[in-house]
Write a protein that binds this DNA or RNA. Structure first.
Lengths: 242, 242
DNA sequence: ATGAAGCCGATAACATCGATAGCACCTCAG
DNA sequence: CTGAGGTGCTATCGATGTTATCGGCTTCAT
């Protein structure tokens, strides 16, 4: 464990702040190169040159070129999220929240195409920024489920949201500008909404009690549970609705 | 214009057939490398080595590495289409035709992931194989429009089809295998169908799924059930919501 | 204060990749 | 026979990701 230096006033871990500064400068340089000249323009030498230092510094700070790109993606995405999140009153309409979230990530993809294809263009990314977006999405989906408006399973709903959003962004980018039609975005969004949500809520009252009562009412006729399981479940539902 | 040689029996344009043979051998080698080792494994030297010749030969035959990859994509896609197209009676149901076409391209994406991301992973491709697929798609959409079943413009419909298909494939690839759910594919396909065509979706019975999902979302924070009871209940709710 | 340890900057280098030049060889039209 | 064009091959160039290595500096334990 590093010990706090006694007489260096204020600054804990003295080199860390400078480290973070150069990290940020490198990320900014790489972002500029990415936006300006596309993905092929962001080479280690070009980034180092634009940031005013040498290639080995990148490897000391990010370990790898992939690490650099991950950091760039995370920085850009969190910055975009922070700029967008402040204007969100989070009303009591979870479906509208999902719409707004979808619009936000699609708008991010349209305004930062290179960054977006870097984040979602290839599979099997499990970076921090990915987790952040997934967590936000799952939270919104869970709220819709809590309101009794979710038509499919939560995991499947998340995949549908992701698929429609990425399909929208990538298709938008693959279409030449004169043929781009904003109707594509609203069509995909509404299609996603009607696939995931149901218009009439399955439960009237919020909270576990209402959901338990609604489930008990809908239980007869189901086939997923055995007789004994259903009996015990009914008992639990009675306790939950009290 | 090359003149037919007088005494070389049969073979018209003597060098051309050998040319085409080596072209095919190179494409096969590149395809094998692509499927086996991913996109980064297909380098000019590796392809030349696998095909038993030297790097400059690739450039004499394909002009460019991009040209090689385009040829690989075209070959793979047309081969897949040829294998699929023979079992298509093309009945008088244009909507079913669109469904089958969507399934075909998605199946192609799932069985040839590297090839698919090579074809559709990056925007602004205008190769021959792209034209083929687009032509087939526009044809099917036109037939739906002819039957009076198209809800949106033809160009927008094509973009929606493309977006849902590419989103489905890319999302499927980005999800780890244990969480992959074929329901994602049918959900996206049917969502696309109801968005594009005027065909009414089959109204399904509400069932206990919605209430089960609502209850599961509301479970954390409840106090009526013990830890073990809640665990078992969660499992049952998952079965009920499927 | 002094030496040790670790970080930072810089140069050079290694391995690989896409792409090309140049030369030798073969084939075939004239 | 001769010249032109295609083909195989080696060598090479420029660029890229990555690493080794050296010198200088700050920071910390003694």
């Amino acid at each position: 464990m590093p010990v706090e230096p006694t007489l260096t006033r204020g600054a804990a871990e003295p080199g860390a702040v400078a480290r973070e500064q150069t990290r940020c400068r490198i990320i900014d340089a790489a972002t500029g190169l990415l936006e300006r000249g596309g993905r092929d323009a962001v080479t280690t030498r070009a980034v180092a040159d634009a940031a005013g230092l040498q290639p080995p510094a990148l490897y000391r700070l990010f370990g790898d070129k992939k690490g650099l790109l991950d950091a760039v993606a995370e920085h850009g995405f969190t910055r975009f999220l922070a700029a967008k999140q402040q204007i969100e009153p989070t009303p009591e309409d979870p479906v509208k929240e999902l719409r707004d979230g979808w619009d936000t990530v699609v708008e991010f993809g349209l305004t930062n195409p290179a960054l977006y294809t870097l984040m979602y263009g290839e599979p099997a990314r499990s970076t921090t920024v990915f987790r952040i977006g997934l967590e936000l999405l799952m939270d919104r989906i869970r709220r819709i489920a809590g309101a009794g408006l979710l038509r499919v399973e939560e995991g499947l709903a998340a995949q549908i949201v992701h698929a429609t959003a990425s399909g929208a962004v990538l298709t938008w980018q693959s279409v030449p500008e004169p043929e781009r039609d904003p109707a594509l975005l609203v069509a995909l969004r509404e299609s996603m909404i009607t696939t995931i949500t149901t218009q009439e809520p399955a439960v009237e009252e919020p909270g576990p009690g209402g959901a338990a009562r609604a489930l008990r009412a809908a239980l007869p006729g189901q086939k997923a549970l055995s007789q004994a399981e259903q009996q015990l479940l009914t008992e639990w539902l009675q306790r939950l609705s009290a």
